[in-house]
Simulated scan of single mutants.
Amino acid sequence: MSSRQAALFISHGAPTLPIEDSPTRHFLERLGRDWPRPRAIVIVSAHWETPALTVNLQARPDTLYDFGGFPPVLRTLRYPAVTDAALAERVAGLIADAGLPLATTAERPLDHGMWTPLLLMFPQADIPLVMVSLHHRAGAAEHYALGRALRPLRDDNVLVIGSGSYTHNLWELSPEGSTPAPWAAGFARWMDSALLENRRDDIVHWQQRAPYPRENHPSDEHFQPLLVTLGAADDDATPVKLHDDWRMGSLSMACWRFD
């Protein structure tokens, strides 16, 4: 018997997330224990952008250490998940049927936007997955449409995860423990209200309507995964904020559930 999955947006933070003593690390560990077990995962990360929406077909993707300047122990961590080949073909078909630009690859490893939260939520790496890229330079509407294309998968006990960051300006960080900057807090308050009121048109047009859009997202790749998960939600479903924590005065670690 199949069960219906929600979609999930995760702010994944720095690559140190799996080894740090932080509220978000502990939240993700609890979330994985409490979440209804999916039969498979489709995951979109801010750290994989391509010229078209790309589905990974590699059977056993490697773990990618796409960072520098962090503790060497991080390079000993691996997430040896396997790709669900049949699901990958279905995902590609759904994207093509939606009229969205599509490509496939058999060479993509798991970037840290994928393996750091998965390592905390499902540490046994025993749930097969499918990786889908963002479309580089495509707008919010296309990534929302990607989520809508993936929506039917939820009826087959497939968990759709978007991994990015609710706010993401690495040039404006403050010392850890700092009060959130007004421009970051203002953006987060507006987005919280828009999500809780299910104002989808405002969210899709966030760059024109939200306060301080470029202060919080100088580039938009960390926000696009939220658009994917919003698109995967039922049209009349109110999103649920599961977690938040502020890091370095401007990084919101908000996580949202989309039913």
Rank of each mutant, 00 (worst) to 15 (best):
A7H: 08
I10A: 13
T16V: 12
P18R: 14
I19P: 02
I19Y: 04
D21Y: 00
T24V: 12
T24A: 15
T24E: 11
H26E: 15
H26T: 12
F27S: 06
L28R: 07
E29V: 12
G32V: 04
P38A: 09
S45T: 14
A46K: 06
P51C: 12
P51H: 08
T54E: 03
V55G: 08
N56S: 15
A59L: 11
R60G: 09
R60P: 03
P61N: 11
P61Q: 05
L64G: 05
D66H: 02
F67L: 01
F67A: 07
G69F: 08
P72A: 05
P72Q: 00
T76D: 09
P80N: 10
V82A: 13
A86W: 03
L87G: 06
L87A: 05
A88W: 00
V91E: 04
G93Q: 08
L94R: 14
I95D: 02
A96I: 00
D97A: 15
A103V: 07
A103K: 02
E107I: 04
G113F: 14
G113R: 11
W115H: 11
P117I: 08
L118C: 12
Q124V: 01
Q124S: 12
I127S: 08
P128H: 14
M131K: 12
V132P: 10
S133I: 02
H136V: 05
A138R: 03
A140V: 05
H143F: 06
Y144H: 15
L150Q: 03
L153F: 06
D155V: 04
D156L: 00
V160D: 05
I161C: 11
G162V: 02
G162E: 11
G164H: 11
S165F: 05
L170K: 11
E176F: 11
E176T: 10
A181L: 15
P182K: 13
F187T: 02
A188V: 13
R189T: 13
M191W: 00
D192N: 06
S193H: 00
S193T: 14
E197I: 01
N198T: 10
R199W: 08
I203Q: 05
R209D: 11
A210M: 11
P213W: 03
R214Y: 06
R214P: 01
E215C: 04
E215M: 10
N216M: 01
P218L: 08
D220H: 12
H222A: 06
L226F: 02
L227W: 10
L230T: 12
G231H: 09
A232T: 10
A232C: 06
D236M: 01
A237N: 09
T238A: 08
P239A: 12
L242I: 01
D245S: 15
M248F: 13
L251T: 03
S252W: 01
S252L: 11
W256S: 09
W256H: 13
R257F: 01
R257H: 01
R257D: 05
F258N: 03
